[in-house]
Simulated scan of single mutants.
Amino acid sequence: MTQQTGTTSGRFTKASAISWLWRQLSRWPLTRLWRISSALGPLIYLTNKRERWVTERNLSVVYPDLSTAECKTLAQHSLRHSAATMLELGHAWMAEPHKVDASILAVFGRDKLDNARTDGRGVIVLAPHFGNWEVLNFWLSSHFPFTAMYEPPKIIDLDPVIRHGRERMGASLVPTNPRGVAALLKALKRSEAIGILPDQEPDWGSGVFAPFFGRDAYTATLLPKLVARTQARVVTGVALRVPGKGFEIHFLEADERVYSDDDVQSATGVNASVEAAIGLDAAQYQWEYKRYRKVVQEQQNLSNFRDFRLY
């Protein structure tokens, strides 16, 4: 009993400290947050071997024509943007709504959402880990009935803080299980918008291998099932960071293959849609995520995967 209390107390203290920090950062201007991230990015690059290695390895795979120096520079820029995203969580979740709204400098492609809803169909927004996806959530839930899947954080005492931040503009968060999928289907049948993370690696049995920048990556197959059941339209949505100034919301037409009833073809379309979003600014994608990990697990005995052993 004593040991349990101490553990809970430790988690609570850590969660309280993180929540307090987000609250303080929510009061700071984006200009200052970007300056801090500009200092943190190189520091992360120098001190965090894991983040540096994975980022550079992914970049060398997807951009094989980059020189070593160019890859290093892009990796540093990417880690700077990742640091900025972390610093901006307080802004997206806790700043006054009018302040967050004012930081959204422009919205491009909104007609893609409006047209789908005018046709009486739901909209599936593919929201990759690019720019600040929490700002995208803020905008979407401010303008449409919006539902997204949510998995509680590892620090469980942060759950109410994060949940409140994501739901405060009206978003509905549902669990990452069959009950959550059923809720997504219902939302789409009501001609509402839902969000899907297209670049998050699913559990075994919930995906297929499909090319991502020319190399197979294990990709979720939830999308074709939702499209088949609802005839929803699909768009890609991102909040592109304008460093130190704010964000631009971009909605892009999804690759037509996402509508295929073949899982591999649909997954290929999903990955192509993510690639198009990354084309807006490659440095703003979260390259430190091990996107090709399951390929290595599946084919770890093949010699041509030897360079990915640390995955």
Rank of each mutant, 00 (worst) to 15 (best):
T7H: 14
S9V: 08
R11V: 12
K14E: 13
S16Y: 09
A17G: 07
R23S: 14
Q24S: 04
S26Q: 10
R27C: 09
S37I: 11
P42A: 11
T47P: 08
K49N: 02
V54F: 04
E56V: 01
D65K: 13
S67P: 03
S67N: 02
A69Y: 05
E70L: 04
H81T: 04
A84D: 07
M86I: 14
E88C: 04
H91M: 14
V100L: 12
I104L: 07
V107E: 10
R110N: 11
N115R: 14
T118V: 04
D119V: 01
D119C: 03
V125A: 05
P128I: 08
W133L: 06
L136Q: 00
N137M: 10
W139C: 05
L140S: 01
S141E: 14
F144E: 08
M149H: 02
P153G: 04
K154F: 13
I156R: 05
I156W: 07
L158S: 13
D159P: 01
R166Q: 04
E167A: 12
R168V: 04
M169L: 10
L173N: 00
P178N: 07
V181K: 02
A183Y: 05
L184T: 03
E192G: 06
G195R: 09
L197P: 01
D199N: 13
W204D: 06
F209C: 01
P211K: 02
G214K: 06
D216I: 00
Y218F: 15
Y218G: 00
A220M: 11
P224N: 07
P224H: 12
A228D: 03
R229L: 12
L240D: 04
A254P: 02
R257K: 11
V258W: 11
D262P: 06
A267P: 05
G269M: 06
N271T: 03
A272I: 10
E275G: 03
A277H: 03
A282D: 05
A282Q: 07
Y285E: 07
R293W: 08
Q297V: 15
E298I: 00
Q300P: 00
L302T: 06
S303E: 15
N304E: 15
